[in-house]
Amino acid sequence: MSKLKVMHVEAGENFYGGARQVAFLVEGLAKRGVDNVVVCPRGSLTARRIAELPVALREIPMHGDLDLLLTPRLLGLLRAEKPDLLHLHSRRGPEILGAIAGRLHGLPIVYSRRNDHYESPRVTRFKYRLYDRVVAISAAIGQVLQDSGVPAGKIRVVRSAFTPDPVAPLSRDALRDAFGLPHDAFVIAIVAQLIRRKGHAVLLEAMPRLLQAIPNLHVLFFGKGGLQQELEQQIAGAGLGERVTLAGYREDLPALLEGLDLIIHPAFAEGLGVSLLQASANGVAIVASRAGGIPEAVRDGVNGLLVPPHDVQALGDAIVALAGDDARRHALGAAGRRLIAEEFSVDVMVDGNLAVYRELLPDARA
Score class of each variant (00 low, 15 high):
residue 6 V to N: 00
residue 10 E to C: 02
residue 12 G to Q: 02
residue 19 A to F: 13
residue 24 F to Q: 05
residue 32 R to E: 11
residue 35 D to R: 13
residue 46 T to A: 06
residue 46 T to P: 12
residue 53 L to S: 05
residue 56 A to M: 02
residue 61 P to D: 01
residue 65 D to K: 06
residue 67 D to E: 13
residue 76 G to I: 01
residue 81 E to A: 10
residue 85 L to P: 15
residue 100 I to M: 09
residue 101 A to P: 01
residue 107 L to A: 03
residue 110 V to Y: 04
residue 112 S to V: 09
residue 119 E to G: 01
residue 120 S to A: 15
residue 131 Y to A: 13
residue 132 D to A: 08
residue 137 I to C: 14
residue 138 S to P: 09
residue 164 P to T: 09
residue 165 D to C: 06
residue 168 A to D: 15
residue 169 P to W: 00
residue 169 P to Y: 00
residue 171 S to D: 12
residue 178 A to K: 08
residue 179 F to I: 14
residue 186 F to T: 07
residue 218 H to K: 10
residue 219 V to I: 07
residue 227 L to H: 14
residue 231 L to E: 09
residue 236 A to I: 11
residue 243 R to D: 12
residue 248 G to P: 15
residue 248 G to S: 13
residue 248 G to E: 13
residue 248 G to H: 15
residue 249 Y to C: 01
residue 251 E to L: 08
residue 255 A to W: 00
residue 256 L to Y: 03
residue 257 L to Y: 00
residue 257 L to R: 01
residue 261 D to M: 04
residue 264 I to K: 12
residue 270 E to V: 03
residue 275 S to G: 06
residue 277 L to V: 07
residue 288 A to I: 15
residue 289 S to I: 03
residue 292 G to N: 02
residue 294 I to W: 07
residue 295 P to D: 06
residue 313 Q to H: 15
residue 317 D to F: 06
residue 324 G to T: 04
residue 333 G to Q: 12
residue 333 G to W: 11
residue 343 E to P: 04
residue 343 E to W: 02
residue 344 F to L: 12
residue 348 V to I: 00
residue 349 M to S: 03
residue 351 D to K: 14
residue 351 D to W: 08
residue 357 Y to P: 12
residue 364 A to L: 11
